[in-house]
Design a protein around this nucleic acid. Structure first.
Lengths: 182, 182
DNA sequence: CTGTAATTTCAGTACTTTCTGAAATTACAG
DNA sequence: CTGTAATTTCAGAAAGTACTGAAATTACAG
């Protein structure tokens, strides 16, 4: 397993494997993705299988999953019959996709479940309390989602500018408070 | 299993069980937590075991985990020998704890790994490229973490105010841009 | 078309995680 | 202390997930 990888890339790949498994992503898919991201040239399934020592079929499933998350795209290389895969060149694009996909898979179903439970009539005091908490959750999640989607709308240039300005949300909000209270 | 739960609470508990398993949290711990959050009165281990139909020992492990995440706190009820557990009364406190804990367990180790790999001298062009991407990741993650921790500093009152004002980050940022460019 | 390379599917196995019951430990009332 | 209630631990069973190799399918050069 793990042929032809320098220790540096090896370490990074392994780390993202471990991290992947703490998210929904499984360990081998995490490793595969790190490998693709860290490699300038697109990779084909055989490259990945060889570099990480996985079976060809496992790589095939991993690619399928990464494609379904829209984290890699397929491309054909001139003179090559095999299919090659690469990650977006901009890290912020990757992050945006991850956020977006996790929202779709985790947040949206939760909001929908809560919404359905909130329109029911509470049958007793216990349900009334439960509904109150659900309502708070619903509002909080919705608000955080809203904020996140605002941030997602920024392109990396703007994001970088904000970073370099050293602007923190706190300062921005203070600014806004002052502005609004005049 | 699942005794004495009304359908409404049942549904919510089950949903958070499913969602929990998509996060690092396991299904039964997710269910346990939903139950505790939705219940106004603190619950003891037996209550939980009975309500959800889990073994007593499973509940004990779940409680241990929730305590380690600081998502519940232990309390003694007058005249009761058993130990009772409850979740914070404010949903935003729960969310802040979740964000904080996930940062500790997922983001911090990643930042530390990346930092270590970035101080190494690249051995060839491939490593140089890989390091460049790692640097971009590092900076992005650090920035998002910073923003998140700013938001976490807000208390729920302030958060609620912002929500009700209908303020979106986009608008706030536009405001800031205008302010700064004068 | 035909033959071969590339990819995907899938049943079975290996591995990991979760859950349980029994035993051990701890906590405390009397 | 002693006895009992409450909790925790832990080895093994059960459940769930990931991985593989073999076979099937697809893609395409000639």
């Amino acid at each position: 397993m793990t042929k032809n990888l320098t220790p540096m890339i090896q370490s990074c790949v392994m780390h993202f494997g471990e991290m992947g498994s703490r998210w929904g992503i499984n360990r081998t898919v995490g490793q595969m993705y790190a490998l693709i991201v860290l490699n300038e040239a697109p990779l084909c399934a055989d490259d990945i299988a060889e570099a990480l020592g996985f079976s060809r079929s496992n790589v095939s499933m991993g690619i399928k999953e990464l494609l379904s998350w829209e984290l890699i795209k397929l491309q054909h290389l001139p003179g090559e019959r095999r299919e090659f895969y690469s990650a977006p060149g901009d890290v912020w694009d990757i992050a945006k996709t991850l956020i977006e996909q996790r929202r779709k898979r985790e947040i949206d179903p939760t909001l929908s479940t809560l919404r359905n439970l909130l329109i029911e009539e509470p049958a007793n005091a216990g349900e009334e309390y439960a509904q109150q908490r659900m309502r708070e959750m619903y509002e909080l999640i919705e608000m955080l989602t809203q904020w996140t989607s605002e941030i997602q709308r920024l392109d990396s240039a703007k994001l970088g500018k904000l970073l370099k300005l050293g602007s923190s949300i706190g300062k921005v909000l203070d600014l806004k408070d002052k502005l609004l209270s005049r």
